[in-house]
Design a protein around this nucleic acid. Structure first.
Length: 304
DNA sequence: TAAACGTGGCC
DNA sequence: TGGCCAAGTTT
């Protein structure tokens, strides 16, 4: 309690202190991203959500534009070989997302008449769509009221409301309750809030370094008010890396993406010295449906 | 629940 | 230099 607060002021629900400032800030500072424009449609929103999973906006932008120009509707992508989706995915990473997006396009074409469903449960049933993406598409594309709990929102809530620097490694029931409690009652406002709170985490309240001077809710932020205590819980989950199968898979798939004709075994053998690991990685790619083995020890991206 | 799953830029 | 981080999903 500070001297600047008027004694007669009625207790303000926490949500009231967050919604208006964040929404006003978003109005002023929201990025003009292509998937936020009306012409993107639900399919554009969905494509962007697949690409943005664990991938920065800057790297998604060019691939998104090419993708939408080539496959403006789900049916267009569904008509292609899945390997074409993997090829167009380029170096975005996690290429299984491309396969799943293709699979989702096929399912949408078969089950939903070619239109991206607006129902959360129907979205969730599509390959590659989990809790977050289903809520994001329903909210951003159709204005539905869903808690959209991505890494940005979780960090904003952890700081502003819970008063800790970082959220737990895995999304908890408490976080879901909080997100639900903070969701504005009005449907259109809820959708706006979802985008706004996410944008705040992406632009101002970031993992690397928060910029409280630009934060619309700095005065109400529990973490800042507590003196920004350092993260204390279990270590934040790191990502395994170099030397793993992932790296080998990436190198193998890069060769196949560039090739226009089936690739002989020898071309793949050249990308990694360890034959055992190389074979394991290739087997994994085949098992995942990212690579199609042909007779004569040749390989290509999946044709079906 | 934890681990696997790509890639590249930043500090 | 290299660990951290980026609009997660699946098994």
């Amino acid at each position: 309690m500070t001297a600047t607060e008027t004694p007669e002021a009625a207790p303000v629900p926490p949500t009231e202190r967050l919604h208006a400032p964040v929404l006003a800030w978003f109005e002023q500072h929201a990025r003009d991203l292509p998937w936020r424009r009306p012409e993107a449609g639900a399919w554009g929103v969905m494509v962007s959500e697949f690409m943005l999973q664990q991938t920065p906006v800057s790297r998604v932008l060019p691939v998104y534009e090419q993708w939408m120009a080539r496959w403006p509707r789900p049916a267009a992508l569904a008509a292609e070989a899945p390997g074409e989706a993997v090829r167009a995915w380029g170096r975005l990473g996690y290429p299984r997302r491309a396969l799943r997006l293709h699979g989702a396009a096929v399912a949408i074409t078969e089950r939903h008449g070619g239109d991206v469903p607006s129902d959360h449960a129907q979205l969730l049933a599509l390959p590659g769509i989990g809790e977050y993406t289903a809520a994001a598409v329903a909210s951003f594309a159709y204005g539905r009221r869903h808690p959209v709990l991505d890494t940005n929102v979780r960090r904003v809530f952890a700081r502003a409301v819970t008063g800790v620097q970082y959220p737990p490694n895995a999304t908890t029931a408490a976080e879901r309750r909080l997100a639900r409690a903070l969701l504005p009652d009005d449907e259109a406002t809820a959708a706006r809030w979802a985008a706004a709170s996410m944008e705040l985490g992406a632009l101002v309240c970031t993992a690397r370094g928060e910029d409280c001077g630009r934060c619309p809710i700095a005065r109400a932020c529990a973490w800042r008010l507590a003196g920004k205590p350092a993260h204390d819980g279990p270590p934040r989950r790191g990502q395994t890396y170099a030397g793993t199968d992932r790296q080998v898979r990436g190198k193998l798939l890069a060769v196949l993406r560039e090739a226009t004709a089936p690739v002989p075994q020898a071309a793949l053998d050249a990308v990694w010295h360890d034959a055992v690991q190389r074979a394991r990685a290739l087997d994994g790619l085949v098992a995942d449906g990212l690579v199609e083995p042909l007779d004569g020890g040749r390989y290509r991206l999946p044709s079906a």
